[in-house]
Amino acid sequence: MSADLTWLLIKNNNSFLVKRNGVQFSSEAGNLLNKNSFKFSGIANKKTIDIAAAASGRGVVVSTPKTKVTLTKGIRKSARSVAGLTRAGYRADLRQVALARVAAVLATQKPVKAAPKKASKGVRANKN
């Protein structure tokens, strides 16, 4: 079945569709922006890219219909790998969105730095 026909059948009703406040979102795998549109649809398009957090909590998993790779080397190397994947003629229109998704997933995995503790009001420093 063609991608256009599939999109016409699923665009208004499917199990991944989320409608809130007049906006339609989609929670399907392979949809980088979670937007209900033909360009980002993981069901209607044959060539999709799915980027998700790794199960170990460190790195991202980049999936295409044929391959699945876990990238754990940091944001620059992960971004370079994803850019190379999309540059090779495989959905070049999704390059910027995929890079933004990789950066967002890796940013959520950074440890939160603790704020320095302040001295309590009852304790004074010794000036001697």
Rank of each mutant, 00 (worst) to 15 (best):
S2N: 15
D4A: 14
L5G: 03
T6V: 14
L8P: 00
L8R: 13
K11P: 00
N12Q: 10
N12T: 11
N14H: 15
L17P: 00
V18R: 12
N21F: 12
V23N: 05
F25T: 09
S26I: 04
S26D: 15
A29Y: 10
G30K: 00
G30S: 06
N31H: 02
N31L: 05
L33P: 00
S37N: 15
F38H: 08
F40L: 07
I43A: 06
A44V: 10
N45T: 04
K46P: 01
K47D: 11
K47G: 01
T48W: 09
T48E: 03
I51D: 01
A52M: 12
A53E: 15
S56H: 03
V61N: 00
T64Y: 04
P65E: 08
K66I: 05
T67F: 11
V69K: 12
L71D: 00
L71F: 13
G74Y: 10
R76G: 05
K77P: 07
K77S: 14
S78C: 11
A79G: 15
A79H: 05
S81A: 15
S81C: 05
V82E: 05
R87S: 15
A88K: 15
A88M: 09
A88L: 09
G89M: 09
Y90T: 01
A92G: 12
A92Y: 07
A92R: 11
D93V: 03
D93S: 13
L94I: 06
R95Y: 00
V97N: 02
A98E: 04
V105H: 00
Q109I: 08
Q109D: 09
Q109K: 07
K110I: 07
P111G: 02
V112W: 03
K117L: 14
K117Q: 14
K118H: 08
A119V: 11
K121C: 04
V123R: 07
R124N: 10
R124F: 08
A125F: 06
N126D: 15
K127L: 11
